[in-house]
């Protein structure tokens, strides 16, 4: 099993069920997490939800989606916020924090472990990444 497949099996992307996206390309996900996409096709304003920079969720986002180090991705996010190009991401310190934030924001998008995703509330759904 390749590293990428293992990583893909370990974590998943989740969004608010009101904004069910089905699947997204890697570049579409990346654009959402750095403010290049500000609004989803359904009209909801994009709200990134990220883990601590040292968390495995953020590590997965950096390696699987950005193919960069967590430091590089965090620096890019901070820079885009400083530019005014993206809303500040919500920092979730736990699975519950992440799900809670996505439930509150129609355009929320975050990363949770695949195991935890087996017990998602009905208001949050998994998005497949091409």
């Amino acid at each position: 099993m390749s590293t990428r497949t293992a990583l893909a099996d370990t974590f998943v992307l989740v969004v608010n069920a009101k904004n069910a996206l089905g699947h997204l390309g890697r570049s579409q996900v990346r654009d959402a997490f750095i403010g290049q996409t500000k609004q989803w096709p359904g009209g909801a304003v994009v709200q990134a939800v990220i883990g601590d920079s040292s968390s495995p969720e953020f590590g997965w986002l950096a390696s699987r989606i950005f193919e960069q180090s967590p430091q590089e991705v965090l620096g890019r996010i901070k820079q885009e916020v400083f530019r005014g190009e993206m809303k500040r991401p919500i920092v979730a310190h736990s699975f519950d924090d992440c799900i809670s934030a996505i439930v509150r924001h129609d355009g929320g998008i975050g990363v949770v472990s695949a195991d935890a995703a087996k017990n998602l509330p009905a208001t949050v759904v998994v998005v497949n990444v091409d």
């Binding site: 500040r88 919500i90 920092v91 979730a92 310190h93 924090d97 934030a101």
Partner: peptide, 10 residues
């Protein structure tokens, strides 16, 4: 309330 505050100062 760093995780979700409308106002932030850096």
């Amino acid at each position: 309330d760093e995780s979700e505050s409308n106002l932030e100062i850096k």
